[in-house]
Design a protein around this nucleic acid. Structure first.
Lengths: 203, 203
DNA sequence: CACTAAAGCGGAGGTGCCTCCGTTTATTTA
DNA sequence: TAAATAAACGGAGGCACCTCCGCTTTAGTG
């Protein structure tokens, strides 16, 4: 197994991921964070120079880490998916199954918000880079299935629906028009859906 | 009432295409022509300012006619398809069926060459603008079917293949790697294909 | 520590995009 | 034909992209 720490870094599999210098690591992370905000707020066309500035680095640094806009978009998107899946586990650990599900779905709305901002570039990326599509969609629906099954098993929600039903229901969020109150309306939709799920539960 | 023209331009269908001024018409055509060359040569990223300059107009004129790069790409692409279909009819009229088919397939190679240059933008356009896809792919395969059927019926090529077989065979051109000698190799492929088609013909 | 090579930084500068608006030109009307 | 007017032109200017390379920082080494 690859022991990250210690002096040795030799045991790698792929070509050569190369250990990043501490400052480089910091900058990179900051850039992704700022970019995620910027994309969510202004869409994919957010100014890269602006992102660099707000991350407190030069434009050259941004381009060294992410040679093209698409690279950056992809990393931001993957991070978003990562966070979403991580949240599922954490919520499941810290809340009753039905509450965990509801909270997660609310977070799902955030995720969609980002995804919308990235729409144009993403569409291209997802058709081009097939790994990206299979990776991410699998992970998200997997995370959701875990929450649904747990809630269903514990009797907190009705047992006659499954993850794909709920995913389908949430589809309305994705295709909803981009009005200013989109965010609020989506939140209400989630609550409504939860009420429906709780109605007629065993427990 | 808005009876714009006397001479007879009144019979229009859509909202209001508006008659273009003579100079505007000229400029527009020149732009599309130059753009087609530029895209084929340098890919979709060909400089718009360059295109405008080579067409002998200001950059403002280009943008008035084609608000975005995609608009221009779409028009160029449609024109290409148009030309291809027109050529099919013309060749069928002026040559024996098998020769017409061969000449047309050589021209098809030109068409693919343009299409490759436009690849990135086109992919996006074709997934976004569904009319564009159904319009164009239908027209091209229709034109081809006409030539094949004629050649087949006249006994100049074998009768046990149809248009979709040939289209399939030409697929190799589209997916071939983009080497410098791509053009030549594709030409040879067409010849080879024609020999195969002529072999065992009735006539 | 002091030193050094390598890694990383950053921003000036060249290029293309696109908007805006004063000037030119085709067309219509008298 | 000349004047009037609406359409079209074109390019300057402002902004973002991205490359390039001299300068700075880090992380090892003696």
């Amino acid at each position: 197994m690859p022991d990250q720490e210690m002096t040795a870094e030799a045991t790698r599999d792929a070509p050569a991921p190369k250990a990043l210098r501490a400052d480089a690591q910091r900058n990179r992370e900051k850039l992704v964070e700022v970019a995620a905000q910027a994309f969510a707020a202004d869409g994919v066309d957010a100014s890269l120079e602006d992102i660099a500035k707000r991350a407190g680095v030069g434009i050259g640094t941004l381009y060294r880490h992410f040679p093209t806009r698409e690279h950056l978009v992809e990393v931001v998107y993957r991070r978003e998916v990562e966070g979403l899946c991580h949240a599922a586990e954490e919520l499941a650990r810290e809340h009753p199954a039905d509450v965990a599900l509801e909270l997660w779905m609310q977070r799902f709305v955030d995720y969609i918000a980002t995804k919308r901002g990235l729409a144009t570039s993403l569409r291209l990326l997802l058709t081009t880079n097939s790994t990206l599509f299979s990776d991410t969609s699998g992970r998200v629906s997997g995370a959701m299935r875990g929450l649904i099954d747990a809630a269903s098993a514990s009797g907190k929600i009705r047992a006659d629906i499954d993850a794909s039903d709920v995913m389908h229901a949430l589809g309305g969020i994705y295709s909803a028009p981009n009005t200013p109150d989109w965010r609020e309306r989506s939140g209400r939709l989630v609550k409504l859906l939860m009420d429906g799920l709780r109605f007629g539960a065993r427990g």
